[in-house]
Amino acid sequence: MALQTATQGTGAQGDSVGLAARLGQNRTFLGVLFMLPAAMVLILLLAYPLGLGVWLGLTDTRIGRAGIFIGLENYEFLFDDSVFWLSVFNTFLYTVVASIVKFGLGLWLALLLNNHLPFKAFLRAIVLLPWIVPTVLSAIAFWWIYDSQFSIISWTLIQLGVIDHYINFLGDPDMARASVIAANVWRGIPFVAITLLAGLQTIPQSLYEAAVIDGASPWQRFRFITFPMLTPIIAVVMTFSVLFTFTDFQLIYVLTRGGPLNATHLMATLSFQRAIPGGQLGEGAAIAVAMIPFLLAAIMFSYFGLQRRRWQQGGGD
C-alpha cells in the first residue's frame, strides 16, 4: 500500500496515475510484487549457492585460482577413489541406522510423554535439551565421554569391575562408527519425540474410546489408530531427520575428523576436507553435489511414499 501511495503522490500525469492505480488493483501484479522479497531471499541465499556449487563441481577450481570447465572429470575421478566410496558407505550406514534408532526411540518417548504424567510441561522441556544445546558443545562433551584415556563410561565400568581396560570408542573403525551414531541419536531424539508428540495430541480421543468399546487391545489401538493417524507427521519428521543426519558435519569433525582410517568420514566432512584444507574446491563441490541425488531420493520417498492414503489407512499398496 505504501508503495501505491508513493507512486500516486509522485505521478504528475493523469496517465501514469491511471496505470499505477490499475496496477495497484491488479491481483497478479500485486501477487508477484509481494512475493518478490521472498523470492529474492530464496534466489540469493539458496538457488545461487546451489547453482554455484553445481558449477564448481564441473570445474577444476582450486583455492586461489579460478578453474576451467572440465565436465564430469571430478566425478570420474571420485569414481576411482576408494576413500570417496568409503565415505558414501559411511554416510548411508550413519543415516540409515541413526534415523531408524531415532525414529524408534523418539516415537517411544513421544508415546510416554503423551500419557498423563506429573510435571508434564517440565519433562517435555527437559527432553528438548539435547536438541537445544549447540551441536559443537555436545560434540565436545562426547569427545570427552569417548576419550581413550579419560572416558567417564570406561572409568565407571572399571570402577564397577565390569571391564578391566578402557574402551577404545573412537580408535577402532566399527566402534567409532557405532559411537558417532550413538552421539547423533542422542542429539536427534528430542526433535523426533517432540514433533511426534505434537502429532499424537491431534488424534481425536473419540477414536480411542470407540476402539476400546470395540474391545481393541493397546497394540491394536496403536497399530490401527495412532500409527495411521501419525503417518503424515512421521513423513515430515523423518524427512527432516534423514536430511539432518545425512548432512551431519560438526559431530564428526569434532569427534574424529573422519578417522580412524577414514571409518567415520561422511560425504560432508570429506567434501570439506578436500575443498578447504586440501584446496581442491572443484572436487569438494563435486562430493557435495553427489549428495543431492540421495537427498532428493529421501525427500521423494517420504512425500510420495509415506503420505499415500492407503498407507495412512493401514493398507498395503
Binding site: S148, Y166, N168, G259, P260
Partner: peptide, 14 residues
C-alpha cells in the same frame, strides 16, 4: 598406549 588411532592433536597433551 591403546586408543592412539583415535587421537587428534590435543590427546597426547592430555
Amino acid at each position: 598406549i591403546p586408543g592412539t588411532l583415535s587421537w587428534l592433536d590435543p590427546n597426547n597433551n592430555k
